[in-house]
Design a protein around this nucleic acid. Structure first.
Length: 727
DNA sequence: GTTTTATTTGTGTAGACAGCATGTC
DNA sequence: CTACACAAATAAAAC
């Protein structure tokens, strides 16, 4: 099917022809035949890299030219950024909506396409963003994630709510291959488009004893070494191809990169540059290992890396400099980073309390699908490594030839229901039990199951929890109403349990304790917690016995101790302990610290709002701690940090020279201040300080001469969040 | 006697969404 | 309750 024959705007046709795209891929043509341009709902379940984005883009452009508005939902912030880039052009206005401060929510209504994460969309619904009602085409990327245990329920509810608001909504679901696409298509009232077609040939095989076994053929390797995983790398490297190696733990990823560096010994100036960047971004031992490996063309990738280091690795690989990345599943679902050969070394993964478990077939497909770069590689290879002869057949059967799993709705779970029923009630989707039942009747869960006894029971349980915790009330006529607390919790996007814990525990305290507050937040279901190692136990026990009186929560569970460790990391950050020292002491990665801080920043903000209404005596205490988390500063820097232009570093420098407050700034020798802050900043800071203290500036003014040329706005690179520096 | 290599033992285990209002090195 | 990779400690073998 020719592009020219399609009812899409001319600008899009020009864009495609500039990219050399003149004809649709077969699965894309199928979508058109199935009514893509006739506002028909579609579930497109086709392999990775077979052109799903193009399908969505064409439909959206057509919809926009007909006066419509499009919402594109993605699972990851990084994907949101990627799609934003993809869709941006002269003709359409594209906006991005994630938890990051990209654009103000009310402006989003002006865009033709809004790219958003599922949680952000849910949050926008809860805050009644008016423009959402005008969305006429909804694209859901990776819609199979509806079955994800931790995030699937939200995605399902978001889709359900958008459909409810706009019965005329066209929905396009983009999905990986799954076991039961018919069920999902049925729920969406959508035409199902499936295909096995790929633009680059994908060969899937199993390596054993010096040869890769494919269906009907094999490839013998020249193997001088006994390490299978390295042989597979060298084999591809000799032909000039790149490898992605999937392993099951961070430690394994690092170890592989180290070994690969030894055998690759690739040298280039570009590699040295990337290594330098990484060494600067991550000063921990693990960062040094990465920098050294990258110097030789090998890298690893996992969530413990700071973002700047991760991005350097991705760029180095994309530019063809880095020969191999050993990765945990971070790379499987995330960015588009294909390689000639994908080596799936670890197909088992540890699960707490269960031991090693085989990864789902769907996840194997995600990884294997990364093999083969369109237009660059003649083919792609996905190779599993067998440990003995018997394993060869087993691996074919369990992964390569296995059908993908069915996906199942997650929205019947009690904790999910608490959260989402509260939202339904506080945002007016349902006013009583009957309406709630009616809404849930239309869920994917209800469409999958004939009997809804479990759903029914859990709705009841969730409602009584919400009533007991004072989030909703049931009037005599059966009307369900959100209380002010319930509305607040829902809008802050907190799990009801998190909100209740904060209100109850904080409200019970007589005196404030920063450590107690941090630990409380670390106990909530909305907080990520570190895994507790055996070597941490001593430290955590010690803190428990010596600082027990600072802690507000007392249940002696495993979670409790994990929360102690996590709170200790957060506290260290607030005490200005250097990052590499924190990493060293607690055995965590630099990226993990940022994850904790980011998470706590949100929860501290929410706590401040809750404290304001339900424990006003702690109002300033909580807000001060919020500022400390945000900036990573000790209490003593609080007066300085409030000044614009002063962050943790400058505040510390001023403090150490005896300038501890805005008043001090005004009475200090101006020369000293200029020495620390520079002329331009000093002027602005002094003005601020004068305003704050109510003093006039004329005592200090003209000693500061305007000699520094202000940097042009276009030359400063805006950064999205406070944690991005170091790039 | 010293260095290299094999064997045993103990340890730890993936990822990442959300609020709000302008800024850090 | 289930496994496995890795690193450190230890033993064995080669030089």
């Amino acid at each position: 099917m020719k592009i020219d024959s399609l009812p899409i705007p001319i600008s899009l046709r020009t864009k495609y022809s500039a990219l050399g795209i003149t004809e649709l891929y077969p699965p894309q043509a199928k979508c058109v035949e199935a009514g893509l341009f006739n506002r028909k709902n579609q579930l497109v379940a086709i392999p990775t890299a077979s052109g799903k984005t193009l399908v969505a883009e064409m439909a959206m452009q057509k919809e926009i030219s007909d006066g419509g508005k499009c919402l594109y939902i993605v699972p990851l912030k990084a994907l949101a950024a990627e799609k934003y880039e993809d869709f941006s052009g002269k003709e359409v206005k594209v906006g991005i909506a994630t938890g990051d401060p990209d654009q103000r929510d009310e402006y989003l209504g002006r865009y033709d396409i809004i790219v958003a994460t599922s949680e952000k969309t849910d949050s926008l619904l809860r805050n009644r963003a008016e423009w959402l009602k005008r969305v006429s085409l909804l694209v859901v990327d990776e819609i199979h994630l509806i079955g994800d245990p931790s995030r699937g329920a939200t995605l399902e509810m978001v889709i359900a709510k958008l459909r409810y608001q706009n019965p005329n909504l066209q929905i396009i679901g983009l999905s990986a291959t799954m076991g039961n696409p018919e069920e999902l298509a049925n729920w969406l009232n959508a035409a199902l488009v499936t295909s096995e077609w790929r633009p680059v040939d994908l060969r899937e095989g199993v390596y054993y004893n010096g040869a890769i076994h494919f269906h009907g053929s094999e490839r013998i390797l020249q193997t001088p070494k006994k390490d299978d995983d390295l042989n597979l790398l060298l084999d591809t490297a000799e032909e000039g191809g790149q490898c992605l190696v999937f392993v099951s733990s961070r430690r394994s990823a690092e170890a592989y990169a180290k070994r690969a560096a030894v055998v690759l010994k690739k040298k280039s100036e570009a590699l040295d540059l990337y290594a330098e960047k990484i060494a600067k971004a991550d000063t921990t031992p693990s960062g040094k290992v990465l920098a050294n490996s990258v110097k030789n063309g090998a890298a690893f990738h996992h969530a413990g890396l700071p973002r700047a280091a991760r991005e350097a690795v991705e760029e180095g690989f994309r530019k063809g400099e880095i020969q191999v990345i050993a990765s945990t599943p971070t790379l499987a679902a995330g960015l588009n980073l294909p390689a000639r050969r994908v080596i799936i070394r670890d197909y088992q993964r540890y699960e707490a309390g269960v031991g090693m478990n085989p990864i789902p077939v769907m996840e194997y497909r995600q990884m294997a699908g990364r093999a083969g770069r369109p237009r660059l590689d003649p083919y792609g290879e996905a190779v599993l490594i067998a440990k003995d002869r018997d394993a060869v057949d087993v691996l074919f059967e369990k992964f390569i030839d296995a059908p993908a799993e069915n996906i199942a709705s997650q929205c019947q779970k009690e904790n999910e229901l608490r959260n989402h029923l509260l939202a339904l009630i506080t945002t007016g989707f349902a006013k009583n039990r009957a309406e709630l039942d009616g809404f849930m009747e239309k869920s994917f869960y209800a469409s999958q199951k004939a009997v809804h006894r479990r759903l029914d029971r859990n709705i009841g349980k969730a409602l009584s929890y919400l009533i007991e915790s004072g989030m909703i009330t049931e009037e005599t006529g059966g009307e369900l109403l959100g209380t002010s607390f319930g509305v607040l919790a829902s809008r802050l996007y907190l799990d009801p349990e998190t909100a209740s814990l904060i209100r109850d525990i904080l409200g019970k305290q007589e005196t404030f304790s920063a450590f107690g507050m941090l630990h409380l937040l670390c106990m909530t279901p909305n907080m990520f917690r570190f895994y507790l190692k055996a070597s941490d136990e001593r430290l955590v026990d010690e803190v428990f016995s010596e600082r027990g009186d600072e802690l507000w929560c007392e249940e002696l569970s495993e979670e409790f101790f994990a929360a102690v460790k996590t709170a200790l990391v957060a506290e260290a950050w607030c005490e200005e302990v250097p990052e590499d020292v924190i990493c060293e002491n607690f055995g965590v990665g630099a990226g993990d610290i940022h994850a904790v801080v980011e998470n706590l920043r949100w929860l501290m903000h929410a706590s401040a709002r809750i404290a304001h209404e339900f424990a006003p005596r702690f109002d300033t205490d909580v807000r001060d701690l919020e500022i400390r988390i945000e900036n990573g500063v000790k209490e003593e820097l609080l007066p300085l940090i409030t000044l614009r232009g002063i962050g943790r570093i400058r505040a510390r420098r001023l403090f150490d020279r005896g300038i501890t407050t805005p008043e001090d700034l005004l009475s200090a020798e101006p020369k000293d201040v200029v020495g620390i802050l520079g002329t331009v900043l000093t002027k602005s800071v002094l003005e601020q300080a004068a305003k704050k203290t109510g003093r006039t500036l004329d005592a200090v003014p003209l000693l500061i001469e305007e000699e520094a040329v202000p940097v042009k706005a276009s030359e400063t690179k805006p950064q999205k969040t406070l944690f991005d520096f170091g790039e």
